[in-house]
Design a binder for these strands. Sequence first.
DNA 1: GTCAACATAGTGAACGATCACTATTTTGGT
DNA 2: ACCAAAATAGTGATCGTTCACTATGTTGAC
Lengths: 356, 356
Amino acid sequence: MSVESQGAPGRTPKRSTLLDVARRAGLSHQTVSRYYRDNGEGLKAATKTRIESAIAELDYRPNLIARSMRTRRTGRLAIVLPGGRALHPTEFLNAAAELAREEGFTVEMVGYDGDAAERLGRVLELADWGQVEGVLSISPLDGVDRRASSVPIVVAPEYDDDMRALRNLADGDTAAEIIEHLAGLGHRTFLHIAGDLRWTSARNRRRVYQETIDRLGLTSYGIVDGDWSAQSGFDAVMGLPVGSGVTAIFAASDQVAVGVVRAAWRRGWKVPDDLSVWGWDDQELSRFAVPAISTVTVDRELEGRFAMRRLVAAVRGEPEPLEEPSRKTVNRLVDRESAAPGPFAGQPLPRRRSAR
Amino acid sequence: MSVESQGAPGRTPKRSTLLDVARRAGLSHQTVSRYYRDNGEGLKAATKTRIESAIAELDYRPNLIARSMRTRRTGRLAIVLPGGRALHPTEFLNAAAELAREEGFTVEMVGYDGDAAERLGRVLELADWGQVEGVLSISPLDGVDRRASSVPIVVAPEYDDDMRALRNLADGDTAAEIIEHLAGLGHRTFLHIAGDLRWTSARNRRRVYQETIDRLGLTSYGIVDGDWSAQSGFDAVMGLPVGSGVTAIFAASDQVAVGVVRAAWRRGWKVPDDLSVWGWDDQELSRFAVPAISTVTVDRELEGRFAMRRLVAAVRGEPEPLEEPSRKTVNRLVDRESAAPGPFAGQPLPRRRSAR
DNA sequence: GTCAACATAGTGAACGATCACTATTTTGGT
DNA sequence: ACCAAAATAGTGATCGTTCACTATGTTGAC
């Protein structure tokens, strides 16, 4: 680690101000202000040039704090980091921060500590103090009345339950595809190990899992509620009674899937020969695991950009942006080594349940 | 995802100001200002009470922007996110942000895009505009003259080469311990797969690897420069000629180690029977890999707090803080399943080279 | 040449806090 | 009671912008 402490004691570079620029250019401060506001529009070319050279000579940079004070806009958004066992989405963060910057905002980081309530308190405080114009939360803000906030709050990359029709189905489609694919491979009895159910995505995958099982007339041995961790996958499989009949497991994440694979190995079950496992996230590690985990690719950069885009739109009072590329192109099944034909390979699916 | 756009059009809650509070309490604005400055010290108890109830009645919160403008202090620090293949240290970020908050700072997030130069430009810009009082970079800022910055810049969790005597040795100690341990197990011919050498830690582990090999009179088949990725570990091992004699590999990270294990499997070598592998980071996934990766535990929260503590100290002009707990307690070898006795098990080490 | 309409530039007052002073009240020793 | 010193409180200026006006200069149609 290294420190470069500049700013020798007493160093006071005396930054020049708008007024200095105006004086130097022989104009009024307001004219210079206009130069920044309209980017030079509405100024005579000569005036503009004078201003520009004055700026250059004085190495002037506007004082953004003063501007904020007058305009009552801070241009700052807050982003609430996830805690706990969730993914560590640096790509997501980078992409979100980058979009914010492109749109002229800066991003403030709010750390996680304590439970959701405490964390949210911190966020609302920030908002109430007028420090930020909007909040993007990467962890669920469960049980929170976001309406109490004075600024827009976006929770990402998850979707609200009530927005299901809009976007959730896409995510759901992928979950359904996994089950369909495994069923097509000849599996009939499944287990789902869910993620932390405070996350909408965990609830969603869980729900679609059950729906798909029902729709195709398959058997679910059960659903184990986990927390996205490898440990939770490991525990779930270690707790499986012999003779459960489960031949395929849909894990909520790659992390969980790796735990599953290890537990299977401990119990003497071969993956994928005795047990097929499907994950979600396409982490690099799971690609190099033995066996490599079959999973779902996810474009975290896209998600990050999109989440931030929505926040920016909300802050500006613009209508909600449409999803960028279709979700379909983002979530893609990738079949590697942890899934193989099951005991009913080649046989047709059981008759689908008729809708009543 | 969900949006709650509050702030119905035209809503102007009219936040109350310090002056409002003063009027309501029947005092001067300066007295109220003092209340905040000294936290009530130096005020008569009655005065303090009057102020407090006025604040409560008006739901007053100081305008931090106005305060910043007057004091010329922003209370903001920037943190530059890592890009590329480095670890995704959410714990690090959270801990750093939390410490900053405890110390009264807010943290601004600067996304990564483009190369180091571009990224650094962005940081210096922030600093020059007087927006932030210090910068913490999680990725290396190679080739950068930090002295050109007008604010302190800390690069973490790495150490500068010239600070080696202070802290690097601890990290180095751990790397040496790994080699010593493997040698004690009966290994004599090693391979090191380094991390991205722009990171000081990668350079450091690489150097200590070589030094330890020399010191103990062992044989290094070579060093492969990687980029922290599993792919780099995989490629290194796939490229190893038969009969290289390598029986133990020191991988710069768990990520790399997993790639190594997979490549070994592909080549028909058993880990740890034919090849011992040691990683670094103690990621959850590598604990559940088969075989579980022997590795080094790292306390990322501690690192995050410490890095931020150093920045805060630098910003305040205080002396450099001492390392919190000793590094020794932080980096600890944890032996799992990927290392086993080698071909010379039980035999004494070759005679150490004498120093000339 | 006149005058309205438009294009440019200028003036002074905010924004909401803190700073550097000055003014007033309390305190306590005699 | 008195008065200096200490403890409290108040006054006015100021930080660097932008806002809402007002003022001046430039056109072009008649």
